[in-house]
Amino acid sequence: MQLRVLGCSGGVRQGARTTAFLLDDDVLVDAGSGVGDLTLGEMAAIRHVFLTHCHLDHVAFLPLLLDTLFEALSDPARHPLTVHAQTVTLDALRSHIFNGVLWPDFTRLPHPEGPVVQLAPLEPGESYPLGGARTVTMVPGHHAVPTVGYHMEAPDTALAFSGDCTTNDDLWQGLNGCRRLDHLIVEAAFPDEQAELAAAAKHYTPASLAADLSKLAHEPLVWITHTMPGKEARIVEQCRAAMPDREVRSLASGEVLPLR
């Protein structure tokens, strides 16, 4: 199993893309602006998209991806792209994006019986089997809107992605119930000196993340994501200081994680 970081920034600037990860070559986890760095061939290989929540920095490039692939996905011999998320997140996509006003309703195009995208509800605790003996399991999270994370497992490795998150017990209890966890991609959006803003926005700081990581029974390699532009180095430095007993690394757009 391989994970390519398409975007891992909490905002945008030159060289920074918002959240999107490519699992192997056929699964997209979130669909932020990092999707735009894929080639047409790489986009066409995607079969599944797993969304954590409905905020724009995590879904903005999904409608653009469908528009780009519309002709190929309209082929009756090909299955539609499947988007997995909580029911509340899928409802938000229908109401606010695929509504015929902000964007065409690709859930009914080119015709209702054969749309280019299929919205498939998944709830925390449920798993979805992928090809290659891979399994994706939705785990609960806590953010300003309903959100989840994902645990992804293959025979040789297992990783989890927190999604956007703040202090909670449910995520960590969900991950503790997983058999294996080698890598954890977890957000720390703001530095500790912006703790008040982080609390209002329902994001972690290094200190609050360190407190919650004490609830985790596993000892994964920790990758920090969703850092605000211009504050990346400061946040990672604070994470390492707050978690001296854990191996903490920063993410960068374009890198491929050594999952083993």
Results as ranks from 00 to 15, higher is better:
P155N: 02
D156C: 04
T157E: 02
A158H: 03
L159Y: 01
A160Q: 01
D164G: 06
D164T: 11
C165K: 05
C165D: 10
D170S: 03
L171G: 02
W172P: 06
Q173T: 03
Q173S: 07
G174H: 02
L175D: 10
L175N: 08
N176M: 06
N176L: 04
G177H: 07
V186H: 09
A188T: 07
P191Q: 10
E193Q: 15
A200R: 14
A201M: 13
A201N: 13
A201V: 15
K202G: 00
K202W: 05
H203W: 07
H203L: 13
T205N: 08
T205I: 08
A207C: 10
A210H: 09
A211L: 04
L213Q: 04
S214V: 09
L216N: 10
H218Y: 04
H218P: 11
E219G: 00
P220N: 01
L221I: 13
L221Y: 00
V222C: 12
V222E: 01
W223V: 02
W223H: 09
I224F: 02
I224P: 03
T227C: 15
M228T: 05
M228S: 05
P229I: 10
G230V: 10
A233L: 02
A233I: 12
A233H: 03
R234S: 07
I235T: 12
V236W: 07
C239M: 03
C239T: 03
R240W: 12
A242V: 12
A242W: 13
A242M: 08
P244F: 02
D245V: 12
E247P: 04
S250W: 08
L251F: 01
V256T: 15
V256E: 13
L257I: 13
L257Q: 08
P258H: 11
L259N: 11
